[in-house]
């Protein structure tokens, strides 16, 4: 996974601050993510890592600082923002599939309504994507009929159907039973191999080790460390990171 980045970075956060009332959830965060790069964000709960992930497609507006995506500053609410969001895939902790639509309809809604693709073409590509994430045989079922791992893979296919330039993962395996974590991480790993730009908030240290180009460690809203995974796990520089790793790796 070396030398994947080329040209100017795809996502740039510069001096980003975010307050929830008196709570300073993002404290002067600057970060750039290159094209094809896989950045894994870890840290204790409440450290602001999910918020960081959600600011990138402006599901969470920021208080100050700038975020640019593909050279353009994030637009304010409106058509331009909707267009930007269509280019950034997002996968949520709780899947958030549309409960009243079949798996295939979940996957084709965006392409048909946002991109105005022909339903037949969207359907064909949707089925191919479902096949890629290994649930083609579930296409006509409703989300509630699927296991958590299948639902999350469907959610990944739904995001991929928009042919996004980057994918954001907000704790994609945290709501899954342990035996289903692997099937979701496998899909994410294959995406990373194919050169997708990814920002992944996770507690899966194994995924961070083998799939990430960089590991970001956050604590108290600050970006504390930014290093390749081998370096970070072998030699964390900050006390906060050492403390965090000792807590999660001893079990």
């Amino acid at each position: 996974m070396d030398d994947v980045t080329t040209g100017e970075p795809l996502i740039v956060l510069d001096g980003v601050n975010k307050w929830f009332g008196p709570l300073h959830v993002l404290d002067d965060v600057s970060l750039s993510v290159g094209r094809g790069e896989v950045v894994v964000v870890i840290g204790p709960s409440g450290s602001g890592k999910s918020t960081l992930c959600r600011t990138i497609n402006r599901l969470e507006p920021i208080s100050s600082g700038t975020i640019t995506f593909d050279g353009q500053p994030l637009p304010a609410e409106g058509k331009a923002l909707a267009k930007l969001r269509s280019e950034v895939g997002m996968v949520f902790q709780s899947f958030n599939l549309f409960a009243h639509k079949t798996i295939l309809e979940n996957v084709t809604l965006g392409p048909v309504k946002v991109r105005k693709e022909k339903p037949a073409a969207a359907r064909e590509r949707g089925l191919a994507l479902l096949d890629r994430v290994g649930i083609a045989n579930q296409a006509d079922k409703y989300p509630a009929q699927l296991s958590g791992g299948q639902q999350q893979r469907a959610a990944i296919a739904r995001a991929l159907a928009m042919q996004p330039k980057a994918m954001l993962f907000d704790e994609p395996t945290s709501a899954l039973d342990p035996e289903m974590v692997g099937e979701v991480l496998d899909v994410m790993t294959s995406l990373a191999r194919d050169g997708m730009t990814m920002v992944v908030v996770t507690h899966e240290m194994g995924f961070a080790r083998h799939a990430a180009n960089r590991v970001i460690f956050m604590a108290d809203g600050q970006l504390v460390e930014d290093a390749p995974p081998t370096e970070f796990f072998a030699n964390p520089r900050s006390e906060r990171a050492k403390d965090f790793l000792s807590k999660i790796l001893t079990h």
Partner: peptide, 25 residues
């Protein structure tokens, strides 16, 4: 669930499309 409306927004659906295709049905 609010998460579904959020997912619809993150796909690039506008406010009206979100109501029409995801929330109201």
């Amino acid at each position: 669930p609010a998460g579904q409306a959020e997912a619809a927004r993150s796909l690039g659906l506008t406010f009206g499309q979100n109501l029409r295709y995801v929330v109201l049905p």
